[in-house]
Design a binder for these strands. Structure first.
Lengths: 120, 120, 120, 120
DNA sequence: GTGGTCTAGACCACG
DNA sequence: GTGGTCTAGACCACC
């Protein structure tokens, strides 16, 4: 199940991307599984078709899914540990961390947030 | 010294903001210190006056600097450990951390980035 | 309806800010309501896009509105009785009151102005 | 005694003006009293001569003081209840009050501030 | 000299 | 269509 927060600052397509990735890394979606069709998903989330199309295009560019003409989209075999995606997330994390440090956030506070997010 | 990466996706004014915050938290700039004039800084960084103006306006809104007409901009007494700024940075860090986790970044990798950023 | 006095000494963007705040506290605009688009409002008031942009940026910084890329600006859920905004206004009022007193304005005159503004 | 807050947003010349007016309305300075010379005052407050000159020019324009070439500046006979000055202060107060109301400040809060400033 | 406001117009990102 | 960033340049207010 994907939930969209229309008031969030992060773009809708980003929210969807992260949640699909999350479904994959958490094992809800396995390599080879079929994803819902673009139009179905667009309808379910009450979003524009083009927005969903953009998400899937980016996921395919990242090697997370594979689109087969006339059949649908499937989770790629290599999806679960996809370097491209992880690399991007790491770069973003590194930046956020640097900003936090520059803003005076303590190492302890950062560690607390890490522990919160990843569990003990 | 402030360095601008024109190829970065993060807006120029954000880059400057972070670096000024960094100069303050690291002690290079102390409360009461005068910042370079808007036009001088704009010229030094080859940027437009308005871009720098935006940076300083936001820093003032966050309570990090104080600007006085005809005199200049000064580091606020309460600039170091400013809650407003730290809170924003923590929220951003928390989000980046969640995205990283969803993308399959391991806890160990996140810890490594944290150690890199904040030192051992 | 927003009215601009180009002869006033208070900047145009301030005038708009106050009037939008007024529309919200008076209930004309409710939390969740969509504000007119930046460019539309700019055109309606015969002002530049950047001037309106500044207004909305400050309202967002104060937590009064929420802006979402590609969708528009919306009145924040917490917009009514927003402490940040009220605090600023109270500080300004306190200063104006002190100046009035120093200038020889009587307590009675001040009370009359208060009654005028807030109603009996 | 006049005190300048260099960190204040209100211009230096305004601060001086208000404080001189305050000295007059409170009776410390009486009509006919001689004010300190421009240069003395500038030196005492460590301010630029032109800043002080501007203050006195405005006070004279407002009919609060009278400048006599080669002799100095004196408090005008009509200074204590000078309409021009009071009117300006009242207009400013009226504006601040309107802004406060628009920002959601309650009538009670405004009354409290009035009581604080003018005493019970 | 300092900061502050506003205009005009270009180009990018999101839906 | 929406908002977001940046440039270039004018004019005002304060010290």
């Amino acid at each position: 199940m994907i939930i969209i927060d229309h008031n969030s600052k992060t773009p809708v397509y980003e929210q969807i991307k992260v949640q699909i990735l999350s479904l994959i890394t958490s094992g809800v979606l396995s390599p080879g599984d079929k994803l819902p069709s673009l139009r179905t998903l667009a309808a379910d989330l009450s979003l524009n078709f083009n927005t969903i199309k953009k998400v899937f295009a980016q996921l395919e560019a990242d090697g997370v899914i594979i689109t087969v003409q006339g059949k649908g989209c499937f989770v790629a075999d290599t999806a679960r540990d996809n370097r491209t995606v992880q690399d991007k997330a790491e770069v973003a994390l590194r930046e956020a961390m640097a900003v936090a440090r520059a803003s005076g956030v303590s190492k302890e506070a950062a560690e607390a947030i890490l522990a919160e997010t990843f569990g003990q």
